[in-house]
Amino acid sequence: MSRNKFGLLVLPLLLAGGAATAAEIANNEHPFLAATAAAMDRMMAAMTIKPSGDVDRDFEAMMTPHHQGAIDMAVAELKYGRNDQLKRIAQEIIVDQQQEIAAMQLALGKPLPPSMPAPTQGAMSPMRMEH
């Protein structure tokens, strides 16, 4: 789905909630849509692999960026979203997807990804939440 179509689908859903003003939606919607579109673009590019001849390795090579895309979109929800229940779900998505990436890498004998601050914390995170 193109970014424009995604935006056209999301805006009516946001407006239907009635909780936010049009200005608040515009202030959060544009950077949210940009962040999720960038996440989708990175994910789709990284999922396009040259087959290795090993189904298991190819599965992990495609699923890792797929899971990272979910993490990146969940981080955008944490940064721009307002619904506490959805923000809790986004936090769970981040943890679950990170664990699944690590499990797939371990299953193939790869080293674990390096330990890093949570995507929403730490000075190095581009998606650091502001309070």
Rank of each mutant, 00 (worst) to 15 (best):
A35D: 15
P113H: 06
A20K: 06
P113Q: 06
A102H: 05
I93E: 00
L9W: 13
G81D: 07
A19Y: 09
M43S: 07
E100R: 14
M127I: 00
P114W: 01
I94D: 05
M73P: 14
A35W: 02
A39H: 08
T21L: 09
A16E: 09
K87M: 03
M129N: 05
E24D: 07
V75R: 03
T64E: 01
Q121M: 14
P51L: 01
P51T: 08
A103D: 11
T21M: 06
N28I: 06
L108D: 08
M1C: 07
H30K: 15
Q85M: 12
K79P: 03
A39P: 00
V10K: 13
E77I: 15
Q99A: 15
I101N: 09
E29F: 15
L106K: 05
M104V: 02
N28E: 11
P114S: 06
K79V: 02
L13A: 09
L112Q: 04
F6Y: 12
A34R: 14
K87D: 02
M104R: 12
M40V: 11
N27V: 06
P126L: 14
G18F: 08
D41E: 14
A107C: 13
M44W: 13
G69R: 00
Q121L: 11
A46D: 05
A45K: 14
D41S: 11
A37I: 03
A35K: 02
M124P: 01
D41G: 08
R82N: 14
D56R: 07
K110R: 15
T21S: 13
A76C: 11
A90V: 04
Q121D: 10
M44F: 10
L112S: 10
G17D: 05
H66N: 12
A37Y: 02
E130H: 12
T36I: 10
D54W: 11
M43F: 03
M129H: 09
I71S: 01
A26C: 00
A45L: 10
V95I: 09
D84I: 14
E100N: 06
A45D: 04
R128K: 15
H30G: 07
V10L: 10
P113D: 00
P31C: 04
T48R: 10
T36Y: 08
A123V: 07
R3M: 13
L106S: 12
P65W: 14
P113G: 03
I89A: 00
A118V: 08
T64F: 05
A37K: 05
H67D: 04
R88Q: 14
N4P: 00
D96V: 08
D56E: 12
A38E: 04
M47T: 12
N27M: 08
G122M: 04
A26I: 11
S115W: 13
Q97T: 06
T36N: 03
S2G: 09
R128L: 09
L9G: 11
R128W: 04
A123S: 11
R3G: 11
R88S: 14
N83I: 10
L86P: 07
L33R: 09
M62P: 04
H66D: 10
D84M: 07
P51Y: 02
P12T: 03
M127Y: 01
T64S: 15
E100V: 06
F59L: 15
